[in-house]
Structure formats: structure tokens, C-alpha cells
């Protein structure tokens, strides 16, 4: 059963996402999206994922917002005085279809927070929780898995960030620093 605080936060997050969708001015949409990221960072904390919450607040609400703001500073905002975007029937149809098909699977999913979910019962989960401290001497199991058990995965992530940086410089034609 969902509590009052998580329910309010979830409602706020969905409302912010809707505001992002309908606002025509890109600057307004970016501000609504930053509020959305902050709300979802708080949801991560309520779901006992403080590491994800920290990263989301710093990277999702912080860096991503700055990137969006830099982009509209270098380009244009949409012309015209309309506050809201006009409704697109094709997009609405696709969105309703996606939500409808996914919602039909809701009954087959385990209740959120139940101790009998496949994730909570998994041997992998038990192994990490029981052995992470002895094997890595790191108290935070998330850090232990990220840097030790799945270290190669994290190195791959670093390669992606490096490739993105190189790609960005090439796209913007700034690969030579004078």
C-alpha cells in the first residue's frame, strides 16, 4: 500500500511531466522538467535508493538542466504567443495505446514493496547482501557492486561518457583547441 507522502510526490511528478508536455515555450518546459527531476529524486530517497537520488538530483536536475539552458541560449525559443501546445491526435493515439497495453499487464506484476517479489527473492540479491562486506570491505552494497562486482560495466560507462565528450566536440567543430 502506498503512503500519503509517496502518493503526493508521485502525483506531483506526473503533473510536472504533463506540464512539460503541454507548455509550448521551451524555457517553461525546461523549468517544469527540472522540477520533475527534483521530485523523482525525492521518490528515489523514499524507495530507499539514496545513491540514485543523489545522482538524479546532481545529474538529472543539475547537469541536464544546465545543458538544456545552454542549448536554448545558443538557439531560439519557438515563436508565437501561445502558452500551450496544440493537441496532436497521432501522438495522443500512440501514447494512449502504449499506456493501455502496459496497463493491461498491471495485474501480473507483484505488488510494490512485497517481500515475495522476484527481485527480493533472487539469489543474486542475497549473494550481494551477504558477501559484499566480507569480500570488498565496502559498507555500501551499491558502491561494492558498482565498483567491484560490476567494475567492467562501470568502465564501459566511463567509455560511453568519453565517447559522448569526443562526439560532442566533433559535432560542434571544436576538436582543435587554439
Amino acid at each position: 500500500m502506498i503512503g500519503v507522502v509517496p502518493a503526493v510526490l508521485l502525483g506531483l511528478v506526473i503533473a510536472c511531466a504533463l506540464a512539460t508536455a503541454v507548455l509550448r515555450d521551451v524555457l517553461a518546459a525546461i523549468i517544469a522538467f527540472a522540477a520533475y527531476s527534483l521530485g523523482i529524486a525525492m521518490i528515489w530517497v523514499l524507495l530507499q535508493a539514496p545513491d540514485v537520488g543523489l545522482t538524479e538530483a546532481a545529474v538529472g536536475a543539475g547537469v541536464t538542466t544546465v545543458l538544456f539552458l545552454l542549448t536554448i541560449a545558443k538557439t531560439v525559443r519557438p515563436p508565437g504567443d501561445d502558452i500551450f501546445e496544440s493537441l496532436d491526435p497521432t501522438g495522443l493515439l500512440v501514447a494512449v495505446l502504449i499506456v493501455g497495453v502496459l496497463a493491461s499487464t498491471l495485474g501480473a506484476l507483484p505488488p510494490v514493496g512485497s517481500a515475495e517479489t522476484p527481485v527480493a527473492q533472487s539469489q543474486v540479491t542475497d549473494y550481494y547482501l551477504n558477501n559484499a562486506y566480507e569480500q570488498t570491505h565496502v559498507k555500501n552494497a551499491v558502491t561494492a557492486v558498482l565498483a567491484a562486482y560490476r567494475g567492467f560495466d562501470t568502465m564501459g560507462e566511463a567509455v560511453v561518457v568519453f565517447a559522448a565528450g569526443v562526439g560532442l566536440l566533433v559535432v560542434l567543430g571544436r576538436e582543435v583547441f587554439a
Partner: peptide
């Protein structure tokens, strides 16, 4: 599911 729908719509 709602967020996926909203994201796809945008």
C-alpha cells in the same frame, strides 16, 4: 506507465 506514455507523446 503514465510517464512512458507522456514521454512518447512529447
Amino acid at each position: 506507465f503514465l510517464l512512458l506514455g507522456i514521454g512518447a507523446y512529447v
